[in-house]
């Protein structure tokens, strides 16, 4: 991966400082615009988004540099042209693939966040269980169920027989593992990326769990 800043104009930049993150180079005033970021959760649990919100008041510093496109926070339904797309969760149905491809098409940099996005994670436990048997267990035979019906509305996305990581469907530029990655890991990753540095996690912030 190139060491060149991916998101900012280096020449004639003005520097501002994020706490603990070193100088951040911004584009010249006439070109100054915020980095546009989109996020979504596919076959995930929104735990990575929750961990992202755990950066707490640091989000105010972040919002000086970025603006959100589609995210669960803005409730925008489709991803427009963006600088950074952050994907939580793997791919478990047809809608996941459509959303993922829309992100890839619109985002200059695509980031896989969390174990599910990186290697499929917990949802892959069903990968060696027949899909029909899985549905029957969930909707017919599960504890406390009575006259359960398997949802079959045509508007529901087609489930896949297996869950897969997003890098098996589209090219992914960066991976941030963890279940979820800690707020500090997410903060370090994002501030590195926004500063045009190659994101690098310290030993104690890199986790697969």
């Amino acid at each position: 991966m190139s060491q060149k800043p991916l998101l900012t104009t280096e020449a004639a930049g003005t520097a501002c400082a994020l706490p603990d993150a070193g100088p951040v180079i911004l584009a010249p005033a006439e070109e100054k615009r915020k980095i546009r970021v989109a996020t979504c959760s596919l076959a995930g649990c929104f735990g990575c988004h929750t961990s992202f919100l755990d950066i707490d008041e640091r989000i105010l510093d972040l919002l000086k540099l970025i603006e959100f496109d589609r995210t669960p926070l803005t409730d925008i339904k489709h991803c427009g042209p963006c600088d950074v797309g952050i994907i939580e969760g793997g791919v478990c149905n047809s809608e996941n693939v459509h959303v993922l491809k829309e992100f890839r098409k619109n985002c200059k940099v695509l980031v896989a966040i969390g174990a599910c996005s990186v290697n499929g994670g917990v949802p892959t436990v069903r990968n060696n269980i027949d899909l029909w048997e899985c549905f029957q267990e969930v909707y017919h035979y599960g504890i406390g169920l009575k006259n359960g019906m398997i949802p079959n509305d045509p508007e529901l996305p087609l489930p896949f027989d297996q869950v897969h990581p997003i890098a098996e469907v589209v090219k992914v530029d960066y991976f941030l593992p963890g279940c979820p990655p800690s707020a500090d890991a997410i903060w370090k990753f994002l501030t590195d990326l926004l500063a045009g540095r190659e994101p690098k996690l310290e030993y104690e912030t890199l986790h697969y769990d």
Binding site: A167, Y174, C179
Partner: peptide, 29 residues
């Protein structure tokens, strides 16, 4: 699946991934 594995944190395979800076599986699962 490290997130629910009892060995997580004490696992040598996982520790080797951390030591070598493994950020993704690279290969198809």
């Amino acid at each position: 699946v490290c997130p629910f594995c009892e060995k997580s944190g004490n696992c040598q395979l996982q520790a080797m991934g951390y030591f070598l800076g493994m950020m993704d599986p690279h290969y198809d699962q």
